[in-house]
């Protein structure tokens, strides 16, 4: 691809962020990190990104709340957003989709699948 895909990872767990960072940077992605939805919103207000990967359960502003706010604005209405979920049931998928997620990554994730999921949605 012509330029590096930029990814923002949002997770309150530092080890999960480190794992994502490790898996993604090793594949050449440019990764930024935020520790909850509020921090992510602040960061996104000032920075450009190609894909957002967010955890759902977080303090302050959770993943669905973050997506809702991003979709409500113009800049990120069509931004690919993947949610990290621990379950892959149809019910969870439907909920993620109706909350505005582009797709999901089931934790614990396989690095290859993570990268595949990002490439599947990266415009």
């Amino acid at each position: 691809m012509s330029k590096t895909t930029r990814i923002l990872t949002v997770d309150d767990s530092a080890s999960m962020r480190a794992l994502l960072n490790h898996a993604l940077t090793s594949q050449g992605f440019d990764v930024a990190q935020a520790e909850d939805g509020e921090v992510a919103l602040e960061w996104l207000a000032l920075n450009e990104v190609d894909v957002v990967i967010t955890d759902i359960n977080m303090p302050r502003l959770d993943g669905f709340g973050l997506i809702e706010k991003l979709r409500a604005g113009n800049r990120h209405r069509d931004r690919p957003i993947l949610v990290l979920t621990t379950e892959s049931s149809e019910e969870k998928k439907t909920r993620a989709r109706s909350a505005g997620a582009t797709g999901w990554i089931v934790k614990p994730f396989d690095p290859e699948k993570l990268v595949a999921a990002v490439r599947r949605v990266a415009h």
């Binding site: 759902i56 502003l61 709340g65 909920r95």
Partner: peptide, 20 residues
């Protein structure tokens, strides 16, 4: 439907007003 879902993002999710 999305409107309903959106106003109720996730049961049990932290209220945004939680002490920061």
């Amino acid at each position: 439907e999305p409107a309903v879902q959106a106003s109720n993002p996730a049961p049990g999710s932290a209220p945004p007003a939680a002490p920061a």
